[in-house]
Each structure stands twice: as structure tokens, then as C-alpha cells.
């Protein structure tokens, strides 16, 4: 189970890869992600959704993160199964329910792909570029940075409790949920302690002394970015026209 968790988690965590897409300006990456997201929200039939999936898979292939995106897709498919079931129980047709479920997967993938190709540092620069208050940017980016750390903590805790005889996959569904208490309590306590320590460490390094701290690098569009924007936007507009 731990190995499975680790395997799936890699579908949500940024890793530096040498690819054309990774080198793009983070604002361009965000634009592409928003375009996929918007199309996933607007399209209504299965063929349109299939085209969006092909687009996302193509982008992931160029970015050399296809194997990671597949993990995200599998994770989203678990939840989409629930969505499919609920819609069918609610009396909607199978085709309609399937559209809703797949749309959910497309939305998750279009969001996930942005986080898979954008480092937390780049994310920080984008948010600052949008003039979002510094405290909010810091809180959000820190949360993103801490995802892999929290995951490692969770894996350590699972190992520690398994060594004391905890069997996560034992018992009926209610018992299985209860089995997670010895995992969740230390995990939450640890993260609360860590957040307190982090706040103190930041304050002792002068966090909050100036309202708007300066940055080392400024975002600048290069030639690849200037070509990627019209290219992606024209495909997006075509997609919009096609779906409407």
C-alpha cells in the first residue's frame, strides 16, 4: 500500500525535467492550463472530451511527464467512478453520466499538468505577477512545497504504526477508516508543530518587516513564449468555436 501511495503521489509533485514546455514562462504554462480547463468545462459530448484528452496527453508527452500524468488520471478515475455511480442512481442516462465523470478527469488533469510542469518558485513568481498579496502567495506556495514533505511524513508514520501491529487493510470498511486514526493524529500534530516552527523561523529571518519584498529574478517572455502564446490561443479559440 505504501508503494502504491508513493507511486500515485508522484502524479502530483513537480520534478525538474529538461523539456521545451518546462522552459516556458510560467505565465504561458498557466495560460495553457486555463485553456484546457475552460474547454473541459464547456465541451459537452464524448468526442470533444476525447479530443481534449488527446491534447493533454500530447502536452504531457512533449513535457516528458506522461507517466506521471497517467498516475493523476488513475487517481481521478477512482473519484470519477463515484461520480458516474451517483449520476446513474440519480436517474441520468449512462452517456450523460459518463460525460460528467470524464469531464471531472479532464478538469483534474488540466490543473495537475500545470503543477507538474511548474516549480513552486515559478508558481510564486506568477502569483506575484498577478499582484496577489505577499502573505497569501507565501502561504500558498509553502503549502505546495510541503506536499512531498507531508507525504514522506505520512509514509514514515504508516511504517511506524505497521511495526506496532497496525493492519490498514484489515476489517470491514468502518474498521478500515478507524485504522487511519493512528496515522492521521501524528500526521496532523506533526504538521501543526512544523508550521509553528516554520513561522518562528521565518520571523527570525525578518519575514514581514517590509510589506513588499524584492525578488531576485523578473519574469520575461522569450521568443519561445511569444510563439507559444498565439499558437496555443488559436487552438483554444478553434476548440471553443468547435464546441459551441
Amino acid at each position: 500500500m505504501v508503494v502504491k501511495m508513493y507511486w500515485i503521489s508522484k502524479g502530483f509533485i513537480f520534478t525538474k525535467v529538461d523539456s521545451f514546455v518546462h522552459k516556458l514562462d510560467p505565465r504561458v504554462k498557466l495560460l495553457i492550463s486555463i485553456q484546457f480547463f475552460t474547454l473541459a468545462l464547456l465541451v459537452s459530448d464524448l468526442i470533444d472530451l476525447a479530443i481534449i484528452f488527446i491534447g493533454i496527453i500530447l502536452l504531457a508527452s512533449i513535457s516528458k511527464i506522461l507517466s506521471r500524468l497517467i498516475r493523476t488520471m488513475l487517481f481521478a478515475l477512482l473519484f470519477s467512478g463515484i461520480i458516474l455511480g451517483i449520476n446513474i442512481i440519480a436517474g441520468y442516462s449512462f452517456i450523460y453520466s459518463l460525460q460528467i465523470a470524464l469531464r471531472f478527469v479532464a478538469i483534474v488533469c488540466s490543473t495537475s499538468i500545470f503543477f507538474l510542469i511548474t516549480s513552486p518558485d515559478e508558481l510564486e513568481y506568477v502569483l506575484r505577477w498577478f499582484r496577489i498579496p505577499n502573505d497569501l502567495v507565501f502561504a500558498f506556495v509553502t503549502a505546495v512545497r510541503f506536499v512531498p514533505i507531508i507525504l514522506l511524513d505520512a509514509l514514515q508514520i504508516i511504517d511506524a504504526q505497521k511495526s506496532r501491529g497496525l493492519e490498514l487493510e484489515r476489517g470491514n470498511p468502518i474498521t478500515r477508516i478507524k485504522n487511519f486514526v493512528p496515522i492521521l493524529v501524528p500526521l496532523i500534530v506533526n504538521e501543526v508543530i512544523r508550521s509553528g516552527e516554520l513561522a518562528e523561523a521565518m520571523e527570525s529571518r525578518c519575514y514581514g518587516v517590509v510589506k513588499k519584498p524584492t525578488v531576485l529574478y523578473e519574469l520575461q517572455l522569450n521568443i519561445n513564449d511569444k510563439l507559444a502564446i498565439p499558437f496555443c490561443t488559436s487552438i483554444f479559440i478553434l476548440g471553443l468555436l468547435f464546441s459551441i
Binding site: D153, Q156, D159, A160, S163, G165, P186, V189, N190
Partner: peptide
């Protein structure tokens, strides 16, 4: 684990 007990480095990872 019944015959081999393991105490992990970080106590906070274990206590709940």
C-alpha cells in the same frame, strides 16, 4: 513485528 520491535527515530511519528 510481534517478534521484532522497531522504535523509529522521530517519536512524534508514533504517538497518537
Amino acid at each position: 513485528s510481534k517478534r521484532i520491535g522497531m522504535v523509529f527515530q522521530n517519536s512524534n511519528h508514533q504517538l497518537f
